[in-house]
Design a protein around this nucleic acid. Structure first.
Lengths: 195, 195
DNA sequence: AGTGAAAAGTTGCTTACACAACAGATTTTG
DNA sequence: CAAAATCTGTTGTGTAAGCAACTTTTCACT
């Protein structure tokens, strides 16, 4: 609909996202109106709809942006899914969850499912892209790469989320000690079966 | 030419001013091009000319904004030109000059005259508006209010500037002790003659 | 002095945003 | 429950900003 590279578009979206982030700290998600967002962003309400279908689409967008910033170069450039990469993914996911509940008001948990799904989706994409880059295990030729990625992403997210809810957030070393071998073994089994 | 209240206009000017402030810390004024400003502000070069004739007009604008922020409520709402108000004006002018040379690169002094003039003009306007508000000395009916304001503004600016150039900037108490009586006496003499 | 490069301005056309007005949906209030 | 108020989502119109192309001016270089 609009040209994604137009500087006006970039600025407008930046304004909308920033306004939304501020509002999320002040109000719960359900209480935030499009009017609120438009006012704080100093844009017209009609302009909002030129960029986002509703506030849920906006939430997805900022979630994606925020989570994407968590990925270190090492992970983005990874050529193989090693234990070290697995560690990194577990830690950054846990880290994101901790931040999320610090930033968002606690009564905004109505949005948790949407955010969860988005994060799992991004984790899955990242993992799959690593699988496809390094084909040492010929994973790249395997038609099951997608479901393997989905399982791995879910496992990592599940571990990070559980640790956040029920364990000490300052002992992430224990988290990776448990979760990483589980994930790597699962993949290892798969590799063995494949050959 | 453009509607001053349009939010797009406000945002664009804000971007231009902010870009210019950043550039003034990095380059000397003469080395800053319109292209530089437009690039950093992420606006089109042609758009710049819709708002400012050239970079001198822009400099005037940000000088006015910055200096205006220096005025405390007490001065803005002053109903009479008292010794206390005089003190405030001397101090804030001195303060502005100190800040100016901290913010701008020292090799940007080619612009000093323009900034000086703008500040004196604003001081004069502020002083005149105070004169006209409080008519205890019937200054408001006097047709010489303008030249008296101009002299007072120049005297205050001159004192502040001299102190910045040749004296200790941390002993502003001495500055006001010297400058304030001079100004107030000058005005007092005038008042006596007038009645 | 003269040549090339970069910056300064200007212009016509396109796109994005502002704004007001609207109908329909949702929430608030008495 | 009904009336009032507010929010939502959309539309048409006017204006500001983006962009490319151009001429003119300024400046650096030999």
């Amino acid at each position: 609909m609009v040209n994604q590279d137009d500087p006006r578009v970039l600025r407008t979206r930046q304004l909308i996202r920033e306004a939304f982030r501020v509002l999320l700290q002040k109000k719960e998600f359900d209480a935030i109106t499009i009017k609120d967002i438009a006012q704080r962003a100093t844009i017209n309400r009609a302009t909002f709809y030129a960029h986002y279908e509703d506030k849920y689409a906006l939430l997805e967008d900022i979630t994606e942006q925020a989570f994407h910033k968590m990925f270190p170069e090492q992970v983005i450039n990874a050529q193989e899914f090693t234990g070290e990469i697995c560690n990194q993914l577990i830690l950054l996911t846990h880290n994101y969850i901790v931040n999320f509940y610090q930033i968002c008001r606690f009564d905004s948990k109505s949005i948790a499912t949407l955010v969860d799904e988005k994060i799992k989706e991004m984790l899955q994409q990242m993992i799959e892209s690593i699988f496809l880059k390094g084909d040492t295990s010929r994973m790249s030729e395997h038609h099951n790469a997608k479901i393997i990625s989905a399982m791995t992403a879910s496992a990592i997210y599940g571990a990070a989320h559980y640790w956040f809810m029920f364990r000490e957030n300052d002992r992430t070393d224990l988290l990776v000690n448990i979760a990483c071998p589980y994930v790597m073994n699962g993949l290892g089994l798969y590799r063995n079966c494949d050959e």
